[in-house]
Design a protein around this nucleic acid. Structure first.
Lengths: 116, 116
DNA sequence: CGGGATCCGCGACGATACTG
DNA sequence: CAGTATCGTCGCGGATCCCG
């Protein structure tokens, strides 16, 4: 498999990298792996995210078909977010990167802090 | 394996995601997989990158120990960039993501363009 | 409860010009 | 050849307030 098309700004890899490279999408995905969650529950679990940005992230992921948004006509209102099959399938690639990260973070930090 | 620590901003996964999520690092890595390259060669291969940004990217990757920078005292000057073992080992995780991207880009675009 | 509206800082990125 | 210097742009993300 050649990755030469990665040099095209519109290539698939660029697209996915832009998504998982953003600040919150991966955290949302990891949160929803265990099952559907409500907006406030996500807010609480993902420390530091503001409502606006969380909404933006969820909308973008919904647009890409990574998750679905379900509104329940109740009082108080309830909105649940659920990963789609597509969203769940992204978990494996992310885990590979995460595993590499955990195995090599010490060496990276060693270089970075010039302890070399 | 639990990925709960990903919610810490200083977690390994966040660190690596910030790196491969940036615009040029992955392209540099893919370019250097086949062997060392000079600055201008990289510029030519990676279409659209400016000298300043390429330098920034290379310096950051050097700091993280992903590649080495070797200066040859010649006229005209020659500088070669070479992936380290650490840098080469990052190729596999990236390839996994790239493969997922290629397999699923159509479904993502289908959702995104609301043809869905 | 689950957002939307608004404002804004900051850092990534780019364009252009110049240099050892 | 391999950068550096300077300036400008742009949009992500944060802060705050408001609403159905």
């Amino acid at each position: 498999m050649d990755t030469g098309d990665a040099f095209d700004p519109n290539c698939p890899t660029r697209l996915v990298l832009d998504r998982i490279g953003d600040k919150w999408s991966v955290l949302v995905l990891l949160s929803l792996i265990d099952g559907p969650m409500r907006f406030t529950a996500l807010r609480g679990r993902i420390n530091g995210v503001t409502p606006k940005v969380l909404t933006q992230t969820l909308r973008a992921m919904e647009l890409d078909g990574l998750l679905t948004r379900e509104v329940f006509a109740e009082v108080p209102p309830r909105v649940e977010y659920t990963l789609t099959d597509l969203g769940r399938s992204l978990h494996a690639p992310i885990s590979v990167v995460a595993r590499w990260a955990e195995e090599n973070v010490h060496e990276i930090l060693r270089h970075r802090e010039k302890i070399s």
